[in-house]
Amino acid sequence: MCSRFRDSVILSAVLALSLAACQREERNFQGLPSGSAVANPKVREVELVPGGNVPADSRPGPYEENAYAVSQGKTLYNQYNCSGCHFQGGGGIGPPLMDADWIYGSRPANIYETIAEGRPNGMPSFGRKIVPDQIWQITAYVRSMSGLLRKDVAPGRTDDMQVRPQEQSAQKAKPVQSAIPKSAEIP
């Protein structure tokens, strides 16, 4: 908390900004308690809900506004070999992550589940390898690749050979629901 501004009426606007800035820089050393709601999001991948349309879990992920966690997510994305299949967002073995197309949903809860549980057309299930806190960090980073996070939260530099524009300068891509990979359409 940046409490030194608390008594200032004049700086109330600054306070709001500063709170955002504080969350941007916040370090969470405890990690997320596993088994908590945030570690077990309710996900839904379709719009058709017989019996009444209850909105899907649209809660933001815990690190959507935390630049430190997104930066950690970027490191983990490479260390857990996510980059081995999706590269720096352009895809290869797995689909691109920097474009607007989402096969299994673009919401944080969807991405979390994709990483944790895997998907039938080749996405491995990392839930037994990566702890929930780190999956949320990777989730936030993945969303930054197509500009879904605030620009001041998305990574602004890379320490390695430049292969793509910085996440920070990614144009926000309006998520589009994509079909299953063509290869999975068995004739």
């Binding site: 590269f87 967002g89 290869g92 689909p95 197309d101 793509r164």
Partner: peptide
Amino acid sequence: GAVVAGGLDVRDSSAALGFVN
């Protein structure tokens, strides 16, 4: 030809082990 067959994003030069560039 993975750039076409896999629908890859050409903005990432390193995609498909760098062949996309």
